[in-house]
Simulated assay, not measured.
Amino acid sequence: MSASLETIQLPHLPSSLAAHAALYKDVQNSSYLRQQLLSANTEFEYAFIDASMILSRAHALSAVFRAANDYLNGRLKSRNVHSEIVFSLSPTNNIADSFRKFGIADTTSRLLVVKISVTPDITHESVAAHLEQNVQGSQIPFDDATLSEISDVTKIKKAYKLGSLPSAAPNQTNGTPGNAKKQLELSVLGAISLRGAT
């Protein structure tokens, strides 16, 4: 199954502010990537997200949109737009906690990487080349089918305090699994959009 870096134009944002996203499994060098982030290496300004904490494409892109919108409006609460994406996944205002729950860890094997074109030199080609050189893992499609195979619904529900919602069980009939997943997704998206709302 081959996949490549995807460039996404987010609605209601300038086309120059494109998002480049790639999803990986079997990542071997997460500790190295995390170290580059911690040392504030500008070449590694990416949102490195633990993909097991992502329920769906809409879940990830809602955080990307929120961070990009806050960047455009001068409302960033973290170091840059990429760290803001990880922070935007969190239902709380605790930045350190959001990185612990949603960011890359030394043991992360499933990784979603997002880069925003905040300068003209950040292009599809430059991001693809840099990731190819620096991420040791297998690229997989950034779509709902793939995410549903790798997301850890129990951990996601715990992070968003949604323990009372049903989990989608594969052996149910009448389309119930889809309904349960949709309900969970809507609750997660609601938690993201409500955080910090005044």
Score class of each variant (00 low, 15 high):
L13S: 07
K161C: 12
A40N: 15
S2T: 14
D144G: 04
N80K: 05
N134P: 03
R79V: 04
T173I: 02
S164V: 09
D152R: 09
A169W: 03
E125S: 13
G74L: 07
V86D: 08
I104S: 02
Q172D: 13
T146N: 03
L184Y: 02
S39P: 04
S4F: 09
K181E: 01
Q36H: 11
K157M: 12
T92V: 08
S164K: 13
P141V: 02
P166G: 04
N93C: 09
R75D: 15
Q183E: 14
A21P: 15
L5W: 06
A40E: 14
A168D: 09
G103D: 04
Y32F: 12
V127P: 02
Q139R: 15
P141T: 08
S98E: 07
S138E: 14
I116W: 04
L162C: 12
K157G: 01
L33S: 08
T42I: 12
K158Y: 14
L5M: 09
S31E: 10
L111V: 04
F99H: 15
A67M: 08
P166Q: 08
D144Y: 00
L61T: 03
F65V: 05
I49Q: 05
R66S: 10
A197T: 05
L184K: 00
I49R: 10
A128Y: 10
L61A: 07
T92G: 06
A191I: 04
A169N: 13
S117K: 03
K155L: 11
A180I: 06
A58Y: 02
S88M: 05
